[in-house]
Write a protein that binds this DNA or RNA. Structure first.
Length: 889
RNA sequence: GGGUCCGUGGUCUAGUGGUUUAUGACGCGUCCCUUACAAGGACGAGAUCGGUGGUUCGACUCCGCCCGGACCCA
């Protein structure tokens, strides 16, 4: 129990606890056999040095879940990793040191990358602590550390042994700028306007059919094709048309000569050809796009690669050798025009595959690469075992998986990544993958400790290709659970954005299925994106960019976290709103003031008060708090953080502060010791419970507040979820009545311009209650409204004039079905006074509907009364559901 | 072109197993310094729940179509 500050100062308090929690180790995973595990497969972010608001959304969700599960008594492992490998770091290092990666030895270059990565991690780590995230930093991992990439290699070796990993010469997506293969998932499409060139391939003279050949652009025997990529003419190996295209029906099998380059190509039919595009005849190259690869394989065409790894034309392009793709496009077009075979050019909308890292248009090259076999059925079967939150996110994964037509190419021609643990025998060509016992190993530095099993040679050449970084990050659930020492069981939660379902989620499911035949996680919680206040993607140029740090320094991390939680339900995109931060900040102040008020009335013995003589108001707030705990628990279990926090705010602000505290003041300030004690104990119980329930959302404020309570433990974050004593329902109803009456009188005073503590002569409460039940407790009420309160039974001494009715559709609708409308009309047309009289004399209502007399139960209608004071009385009347209040002032 | 999600007061958001005075926040207006809090309290104005058909006794909620937006894919 500490002295409480007058004002809540988030800057100093958040800083203080940030450090203290680390020293106390409150977030450490205990590896306790007695408690259920709650393990989070935390995303290892790429160390960009900037932990942005989009990251923060996902981490807030994880932190809410982690903190909630600690309160529930789970042994929570919330680790943090870093996905270090990758091209951007290589590029940054090259820039910073003004070198090219080939200027220095591989090992030295790797060291520079590691050094750079570490500084980036530090910056992001600081923001994570600022935001109050509760990772267990003793479980931090970095994919660039040998103990991690050694496991990546182990997974590779095991998958190679099981036939999942193989090496093949197969067309792959290739980024000519990064000069590496990339996977389908790393290719994005960009819609742009390109040029469509119409050009004529001349016919082969031997195949001339002079009489019936149609005229195509002045060349009687040629064929006109349309292409956006004339630079690939040298790679042309065929021409395709749709089999139903009558223009070409009789020409299938004819051969043509490719202009400028002279190779002969044959016209074939394939249903995939869109006959409405261009001339309906399309040239097939090795390779212009994925469709070309399909045709090339299906129609057994030649391979004429013409693009180099750096995106230049090869010697096959003759005089155009060495030109870059875009230069070649223009120069070849000019040459075609000069040769009089370029008939036309027009602009066209096209979708271009681009590298997701650098936006460079990709090429498709055929190279020896390492692949991971993609078994769609197996992956989807596993994915279906996972609970997707929200559910529809599964559809994204399914659609992606079903659309995959190539295996996953995992080799990259880069440096800063996990080495592929393989060697080639220089004498016989045997490919050897490492033994597990040798891992981690860099094959460019170390050879196998044995000779070639095929030929006995010791001339090994280490593989210089490295792995796709998704090979690293797709084993995170395995790594954080100490695979392979511990047998793998699915972890409890994966949290990630929907933008990386096709990558991180997909690959992780693939890998744990392949390696352990197990789903990686029980549940996948998918977050949306964060937009700026104007509803657009945040971008510095649009001026709608907000950084977590900015919000923290202007308000607080606790306010930021709440704004994120309330931005929308998990899975939807969140629009960042400063006003949510403002209102969250006010709520923090409110909670602080409640705590400040309460702690003035607590002493060291408050928590241990025995058998407190609770009054109805106490029982009401305790029951209410217990209900709230149940509801918040249900929301948290369903990962509805928005609903959980809303529920808590309503309760703390309105029930606890506005209603309960106001009712309590009389007893706290002027009550006798026993009366005071009950009030203090109930208040203590409810406040303590509230702070604990709120702690996942506002960890700093709740910690500071919790420390001011008597009997506090080391931290609110090591406490348990509240479990409160309950009382019978009637006590709750009596309490609620008091609350409602007090609130109504407060409103009435305000309406009549009175001070809220104005004294009143007398309050009479007419309550319809069973004589057997305990009487209404007016003690707190009386002091709260500052008037003597009398409970009366029977009819108040006022005239009740029926003025209207309120038909209950939920009763009338199902009962009368298609007559319901007529019944309601009849009721509304009737005189309310007459209906009241019927109820009093007959116990039922009878109305005339289409000439028939219809009987209704009194439940079907509410009679609305208006009170009119008996003449001469100075009285105001307030009608509540459960009571009528007469105010004498 | 395919898939998914979404369209609720000025703004953002909740909601319904079908019948509600449709939630809350911010903003706006009026009143109030009442011994935790004016960074507060009381109250009020402001929404025909994107449009249109249908199913139904009844649709903001279910179904169809249309319009608009977002994301993923081709």
């Amino acid at each position: 129990m500490t002295e409480i500050e007058d004002e809540y100062d988030p800057d100093s308090i958040e800083q203080k606890w940030r450090e203290q929690w680390q020293e106390m180790g409150v977030y450490q995973y205990r590896d306790d056999e007695e408690r259920p595990d709650y393990v989070i497969d935390t995303p290892p972010p790429y160390p960009t040095g900037n932990f942005h608001i989009g990251n923060a959304l996902g981490w807030c969700y994880m932190d809410f879940a982690a903190r909630y599960h600690r309160l529930r008594g789970d042994d929570v492992l919330f680790p943090q990793g870093w996905d270090c490998h990758g091209l951007p770091t290589e590029v940054k290092v090259e820039e910073n040191h003004d070198i090219h990666r080939t200027d220095v030895p591989r090992e030295e270059f790797r060291e520079l990358c590691i050094e750079h990565t570490e500084s980036q991690i530090d910056a992001m780590y600081e923001t994570m602590l600022d935001l109050g995230f509760s990772q267990d930093w003793t479980h931090e991992f970095r994919t660039m550390d040998p103990e991690y990439w050694g496991e990546t290699q182990r997974s590779f070796v095991r998958m190679a042994d099981d036939g999942y990993v193989y090496r093949d010469d197969h067309p792959v997506n290739w980024c000519p700028r990064c000069e590496t293969a990339i996977a389908d998932a790393e290719v994005e499409t960009d819609d742009r306007t390109g040029t469509l060139y119409y050009l004529t391939f001349s016919g082969d003279s031997e195949d001339q059919r002079s009489s019936n050949s149609r005229t195509q652009s002045g060349d009687s025997d040629g064929i006109e094709i349309a292409t956006t990529r004339p630079e690939l003419l040298a790679a042309c190996v065929g021409i395709a048309v749709n089999p139903d295209d009558e223009r070409y029906a009789d020409r299938i099998g004819e051969t043509f000569e490719v202009p400028l380059f002279g190779q002969e190509v044959e016209l074939f039919a394939d249903e995939e050809v869109d006959s409405t595009f261009g001339t309906g005849a399309v040239m097939v190259c090795t390779f212009g796009d994925k469709q070309d690869v399909t045709w090339w394989a299906e129609h057994d065409l030649d391979l004429r690669p013409v693009i180099t790894e750096s995106g230049h034309l090869t010697e096959r392009a003759g005089e155009f050798e060495g030109l870059g793709v875009s230069e070649a496009k223009e120069e070849i077009a000019q040459a075609l025009a000069a040769a009089d075979v370029l008939n036309d050019r027009e602009s066209t909308e096209q979708s271009v595959g681009i590298c997701w890292r650098c936006d460079t248009p990709i090429e498709i090259l055929s190279k020896d690469q390492w692949f991971v076999r993609v078994d769609q059925a197996e992956i989807l079967e596993t994915a279906q075992e996972i609970e997707w939150v929200p559910e529809h996110m599964y559809a994204r994964l399914e659609e992606w998986a079903e659309g995959m037509d190539w295996d996953w190419v995992i080799s990259r021609q880069r440096v800063f990544a996990t080495p592929i643990p393989a060697w080639f025998c220089e004498d016989c060509g045997h490919v050897h993958t490492a033994d597990e016992s040798a891992l981690p190993i860099d094959p460019t530095e170390t050879d196998p400790d044995h000779s070639c099993p095929e030929c006995g040679s010791t001339n090994w050449e280490g593989e210089t290709d490295v792995m796709d970084t998704w090979m690293d990050s797709s084993i995170t659930p395995l790594y954080v659970t100490d695979w392979p020492e511990s047998s793998f069981e699915s972890v409890q939660l994966r949290e990630q954005g929907h933008d990386i379902i096709r990558t991180w989620a997909f690959y992780t499911i693939l890998r744990t299925t392949a390696l352990e035949d197990e789903r990686p996680w029980d549940r996948a919680l998918i977050n949306g994106m964060v937009f700026g206040e104007d509803g657009n993607k945040m971008s510095k140029s649009k001026g709608n960019f907000v950084e977590p740090k900015e919000v923290i320094s202007e308000y607080s991390a606790d306010a930021f976290r709440q704004a994120i939680a309330l931005g929308g339900q998990p899975g939807t995109d969140i629009q960042f709103q400063w006003k949510e931060v403002t209102s969250a900040s006010r709520f923090l102040t409110k909670v602080w003031n409640i705590t400040k008020f309460a702690s003035n009335h607590f002493d060291a013995d408050t928590p241990s008060i025995q058998d407190p003589a609770y009054r109805d108001a106490d029982k009401w707030i305790l029951i209410r708090c217990s209900d709230v705990a149940d509801q918040v628990e249900a929301h948290m279990d369903a990962y509805r953080f928005d609903a959980a926090l809303r529920e808590l705010r309503e309760f703390i602000w309105h029930d606890l502060a506005d209603d309960y505290l106001e009712l309590l003041k009389g007893r706290l300030y002027e009550g006798r010791p026993g009366e005071r004690d009950a009030a203090r104990h109930a208040l203590y119980t409810v406040l303590s419970a509230s702070l604990r329930m709120l702690s996942p959302f506002a960890p700093f404020l709740t910690e500071e507040a919790y420390q001011t309570l008597p009997d506090g433990t080391e931290s609110v974050h090591t406490e348990m979820w509240p479990s409160l004593q309950t009382f019978n329902a009637d006590a709750a109803q009596r309490g609620r009545l008091i609350v409602n009456v007090a609130s109504a009188i407060r409103g009435w005073k305000s309406d009549t311009g009175m001070a809220l503590n104005a004294e009143l002569d007398r309050i009479e409460l007419y309550v319809d209650r069973d004589e057997e039940q305990p009487a209404i407790d007016t003690y707190d009420l009386s002091s709260a409204v500052n008037a003597p309160v009398y409970i009366e039974s029977g009819r108040p001494n006022v005239e009740l004039v029926p003025v209207g009715i309120d038909p209950d559709h939920s009763v009338i609708g199902p009962q009368f079905r298609d007559q319901a409308g007529a019944v309601v009309s009849a009721l509304e047309a009737a005189d309310p006074a007459e209906l009241t009289a019927q109820i009093e004399t007959n116990g039922e209502i009878s109305v005339d509907v289409d000439g028939d007399s219809v009987a209704l139960d009194p439940d079907a209608v509410d009679i609305l009364d208006e009170q009119r004071a008996a003449s001469g009385e100075e009285v105001d009347v307030i009608e509540l559901d459960a009571a009528t209040i007469l105010i004498y002032s």
